[in-house]
Structures are given as structure tokens and as C-alpha cells.
Design a protein around this nucleic acid. Sequence first.
DNA 1: TATAGTTGTCTATATCAATAGACAAATTTA
DNA 2: TAAATTTGTCTATTGATATAGACAACTATA
Lengths: 249, 249
Amino acid sequence: MSGQQAASIERRSGVSLWRQIADRILQGIAAGDFAENAALPPEMALAERYGVNRHTVRSAIAALVQEGVLRAEQGRGTFVLSRKRLSYPIGARTRFSTGLQGQTSERHIALLASSVEPASRRIADALKLARGAAVLRLETRGEADGHPVSRATAWFDARRFAGIDAAMAETGSVTASLRRFGINDYLRQSTVLSARHGDAADLADLDLQPGAIVLVTVAVNVTLDGQPIQFSESRFPAERVELKLSAND
Amino acid sequence: MSGQQAASIERRSGVSLWRQIADRILQGIAAGDFAENAALPPEMALAERYGVNRHTVRSAIAALVQEGVLRAEQGRGTFVLSRKRLSYPIGARTRFSTGLQGQTSERHIALLASSVEPASRRIADALKLARGAAVLRLETRGEADGHPVSRATAWFDARRFAGIDAAMAETGSVTASLRRFGINDYLRQSTVLSARHGDAADLADLDLQPGAIVLVTVAVNVTLDGQPIQFSESRFPAERVELKLSAND
DNA sequence: TATAGTTGTCTATATCAATAGACAAATTTA
DNA sequence: TAAATTTGTCTATTGATATAGACAACTATA
């Protein structure tokens, strides 16, 4: 809960104090401890609150200014720029574009790369294919109002969905692409969720700073009669996206 | 996906190289790149793989030995101790004990603290109470086979559920405690998921090292006719728990 | 227009993090 | 037994991190 954070700065943890303080400030903004568009407490006050030197606080602030979270103005103060976290709904009918409707004015899926490869055991099992069967792998990035909000790797049966990469590149939508293959509706069969630090590729693709956290979902989509059609792993930047799980639908 | 991690060690990120490499090794274990009970590659090989000095790898390994993830034996190698991630199911009927059945031999919820407080706007809204109405806050820790797997803060209507703290302390179960108040079944209405670095209190309660990631769920439970009875925020250690979202029930 | 409060810049010092090289100690293999 | 492999320990050097203090530059306010 907000306000519950005690003196939680850890030394000798392998994470520098300025990065820990930057993370705490981010949390504070997310929790509402630091209001948007308002001034942060002065550097000296923050230094006392966290039990560190003013210069250490300055390093944290400099990093957040660099990330576009804060704006510092000499003589006036340091201000919180407004940036709401997107709420990405996950349920039986999880759709990228539909899910973010109302929160963004524009969104689409960009195809970064695609390739055909033999199915690993994990993927073959999920798609109910023979091990080693050809699968089409799509590397995609979800973008909303020009900002990356997801980075996904998806696998399809290469025989059944030959050319879905071209469809994705053209339409920018999984739903629209599947429709070209006669699939007008599909359901999410399973979702497994975890979190970790983003790796270099994720950080680059999602425009994140080193140390940023990504939410990871591993999901299987099926047709209405339960036939698996898509296996995917998606990474979401935790600082910009939260996942809203819908119990029903 | 596993094996896809490139040279993702970032310098000058505020996160030390040895901590990043320790995290990478943890990921590698989770992803199956490093098999359990088997030897890790030699320190020199890891140093080359990650593009750092052998001593830096040694620092990472030392940290993981300290955390109980690895065991190093002079002359033989460094070995991965077995520790599977628990898979915690989240769905319409999310139950702590039932959900972990089959994965652990023993599990219960320990009551750390409880207090009565006026409902904040967020809690009043979720529980459909008047703002400032008395709510009972329970601080709990979920434990499985003696290891902490969750840390939750839950709020109940203090009038309707007076004494549920004592019931929790006695039964170690939310489901059993609610039964004493005439509630034999309940559903999860909503779950919102996010992730962050654990704060000091979380780290202490969940027995985590600084820098560890926690998965955070904010959920509302309701009776079968839709009456909200519980609002809760739970923190799960990402290195030990994954969340399995069930589409249906 | 002073004055107080705030961010920005500079110097200096101590500790941590990372690299480099050498060799010891223990284990496995030929 | 000898050689090769692997972890453990030591010294030394460099750069990043953190602390400390002083003062400049800028803004808002009395």
C-alpha cells in the first residue's frame, strides 16, 4: 500500500543507491505519494527521508529526468510529469487494440521480424503439433500513441497459417490477420504470468532503461472448439503498463 | 524465450554487473538453460559468455550461494540446487491452500498483524462502504513448506466481519474464516496485476535479497450475489512464484 | 529590493565494483 | 601417478558510487 514504505534503502545490494531511490520515487508517483504535475520535495528533504547524501538524490533525479519522468527547474523545484499507466485487460477475449480502446487514441502492432523454424517441445505441446514441425515465429511490438507498450513473440502452425506474417505487417492486428484464415473469433485458453528484469533486447525494443522490470505473459489462444492456434510470450514494461485480469468474459 | 538472451549486460545502469549476472543465472535456471542438480558452466566460460571478468562472475555466484540457489565445490564445479517455482492459480475461485495443493505438502496463512482503521477512498469504493467507515486490516503471510510465498494486506468491513482476525489466526485460512461468517463460497470479481522491486518490509517478510522483484495483485472478492467482502493487495516473490491465470473458473 | 529557498556546479575523499594476473587447493581424468 | 580442470585466495589498478562542503544561479516572496 502507499505510504507504507519504510527506510528501505539497502547498501551493498548490487543495486546503487541512486537507482534504488529512483525506483522509490517512481513507486511514490505510482502510489500517489507524489502527485502528478506537482513539485517533488526539495532535494535536501529527500536526502533526509532516504538517509543519503543530497548528491545521491540528485543522481536519482537526473536519471528520472533522463527517462522523462521528472523535470527539474533551477530555483523552482523538480516536477512530476504526468504519465498514467496503461491498463491492459487480460481475459478470455484478450485483444490488443480493443483492450486499449479509450485509453489511447491510436494503437497497432508492428511486425519486427518473422521466421520459420522447427517447433521446440514446449511449442509443439502447446500447439498440439509434432515435435519439430514447422512453425512460424513472429516478433512484434505493440505501440500506442507512438510509445511501445508490449513486445511479443508468437508462434503459429506454419502450414495452416502460411502468410500470416504478411497479413500482420499489412493490418497491424492479430485479430484481422486471423480473420483472413477463416477465424472470426478465438479465446485465450491459458495465461501464465511472471516478472523479471528486461534483457537488453527488451530494453531496446521497449525503450526502457537498464534495470527496468517487464511483466511476462505466456499464453495459448484457441478456436471456439478448443483447437490451439497461437502460442505467445509477451513482455510489458511494468512502469508503463498494468495488467487487468477480468474474471468473467 | 529461453536461449534468446543476447549480450544483455548493461554497464553504468546503477545495477552492478555481478547482480545482473546473478539475475541472469536465476533466469537461466528458471528457463531450463541450467538444469537443476547439474553443474553450471565453469567460471571462465560464464565470464566469456557474459563478457566480464572471472572475478565478476565469482561475485555473482557468491551472492547466489549466499541465497541458497547454488553450491560451489572446489575442484568439482558449481551446482544448481533444486527449487521449482510454485505456480499460483488465479481465477474466479482463487484459494491459497487449494491452489497450491499438490505442489507443497503443507501450507497456511500466518496472521502478522491486524488493526481497525477508517476506509480510504480506494477501499471504501471497492467494498461499497461509506468513506471513513471502519475496516479491519489484516497483514498476512502465505507459507508453504515453511517458506514464505506471499505477503498480503486485506481489508474487510469491520462491522460485518468483527473477529475475523482471530479466526484467521486460529484457522490459517481465509476460506475457513469466512465460513464462520456464513459465507460458504465466494468469487474473485477483479484482479489487477503489476510488478515492482520489493520494498524493505516485503523483502524482510518474504525472505528476499535487495533488488528482488515482487508480483503484486490487487483483488476484490465478492459473494455469489456480487456483494464485495474483501479487498486485498498481495505481493509474491517473482523468483519463487509464478501466477497461473485460469481463463474459465 | 533584499531574503530565503531551491537547483546547478565544483573540488575533494573514501569505498565499492570491475579488471588483470598469478598461484594455491581440490577433484577428476588419462 | 601425472596432467588437466575447476574453484579459492591474494595483490594491484582503474573507474563508478557515495559522502562532504562550499558557493553560484535562479525563483518566489516578504
